[in-house]
Design a protein around this nucleic acid. Sequence first.
DNA 1: CGTTACTATGTGTCTTGAGCGTATACTCCT
DNA 2: AGGAGTATACGCTCAAGACACATAGTAACG
Lengths: 123, 123
Amino acid sequence: MSQERKRADPLHLLPLTPVAFEILLALTTGERHGYAIMRAVEERTEGRTSLHAGTLYRALARLLEGGLLEERDERPQAGSDERRRYYALTDLGRAVAAAEARRLESQVGAARDHGLLEGMGGA
Amino acid sequence: MSQERKRADPLHLLPLTPVAFEILLALTTGERHGYAIMRAVEERTEGRTSLHAGTLYRALARLLEGGLLEERDERPQAGSDERRRYYALTDLGRAVAAAEARRLESQVGAARDHGLLEGMGGA
DNA sequence: CGTTACTATGTGTCTTGAGCGTATACTCCT
DNA sequence: AGGAGTATACGCTCAAGACACATAGTAACG
């Protein structure tokens, strides 16, 4: 199936949405549950990006279905909240995130070459 | 109106869609007409991203309406195809592109910190 | 114990925007 | 004249985020 072909090649899954990439980024440091991803994104972006609950959980469902994430049954700490669902990057997820990072790096490089990142200090 | 507030603050227009950012990027080197933007994007990305005509022209219309681009009446070369419509970045458009570039730079930096850009040579 | 705030996951609905096809028409080359 | 390429634009559909809302467990406080 074409589904299989897509899974085989990370490049066919690009570009990722900003939300999806933030989620994958938050999981590069280890597995987390949904709510913790939400807080991690807010922290990393210093509040500039905050995921709405609806956006987050639907994005997680999509990433699971696409095979970029997998759910972990084991809990990092015993006795943690039973409601939590822990997610971790799959090999594919990591590969796709890396491919997306390279794509963005190329865009940022072009922006820098064209003077977009020097001229303006603030905002 | 809130439309005015949005125009005043580039940060409220983020994140840009990948397509929108590519278009702004293509215009940082000077004004171009739609079809030339399409080719410029393909060239910059070495064929990895190709804008469909429908996607491009609707994105251009949106960017015009949002005040990120403006249409130029003067033609860079006399006698060029009369059908062409030339677009150029506005100050707002440049500011938004710069803000988006910084946002992406931050994501790429995080990816690098987490080893996403070193571990894998190929793909 | 009851109340309140926070944690945690999830669905319903609306709107935006990209993908893809198609229409239209002009230009350039042979 | 005919065809490839240039150039803009619309119709339709699907994916995905925004926001509201639902549900329920947990933790702190009195």
